[in-house]
Design a protein around this nucleic acid. Structure first.
Length: 184
DNA sequence: AAGAAGATTCGCT
DNA sequence: GCGAATCTTCTTA
């Protein structure tokens, strides 16, 4: 849970043969142990094994057939939980992301879990890697000041959606679901 | 082996 | 802003 707030403002760096791309995390969503809407709910399966690794490992899954989503495991080894990275503010490799996303609109490059993964070319090959070690995908400490962090309800799920487990940087234009942010 | 459900995105009105 | 598309994974027969 604290992990979701901690990750706001951190930098995701993607090293790829085509070049480097990075962005600041502006929106996350927590899926604690026992959460009925979480992927870890119901036990460990081959596809979800990364959620049960120690904190700081990447979990990549596919939703609705063609949308990859990127998560960070948040609980000790053996406990299934993670934080979904929902939106980034593009920093480096913007031209590269524009090409991968098929749009020039800066705001749309990484606003939303599936779009974010597409912009950084995140696939199942990055599932289960250690994000604390510099590699094809890793997390860098924020060099820039982080704005105020606000919480709100989760998006896109039906079970336990009312709980305040979504975090975002207040005022950032790179956050999804803007119409619901006013709810604080 | 087949069926149901899903942490979304895109396009049109 | 709303409704449909689309495919992978897990569950049940």
């Amino acid at each position: 849970m604290e992990m979701a707030r901690f990750l706001i403002g951190k930098i995701v760096v993607r090293e790829h043969p085509d070049g480097r791309a990075s962005g600041r995390i502006v929106e996350t969503e927590a899926y604690p142990p026992g959460d009925a809407s979480g992927h870890a709910y119901g036990g460990e399966t081959p596809a979800r094994r990364s959620l049960f690794l120690r904190p700081g490992h990447g979990y990549v899954y596919m939703a609705y057939g063609s949308c990859y989503c990127f998560n960070v495991s948040s609980e000790p080894a053996g406990v299934g939980a993670g934080v979904l990275i929902r939106a980034l503010e593009p920093l480096e490799g913007i031209a590269l992301m524009q090409r991968r996303r098929g749009t020039d609109t800066l705001r749309d490059l990484a606003r939303g879990p599936g779009r974010l993964a597409a912009a950084l070319a995140i696939g199942r090959d990055l599932d289960g890697i250690d994000l604390c070690v510099k590699g094809p995908l890793w997390l860098a400490r924020s060099a820039l000041p982080t704005g105020a962090v606000a919480s709100s309800v989760r998006i896109g799920i039906s079970r336990e959606a009312h709980r305040l487990r979504r975090f975002h940087e207040r005022g950032s234009p790179f956050v999804s679901g803007t119409q619901r942010l006013n709810a604080r």
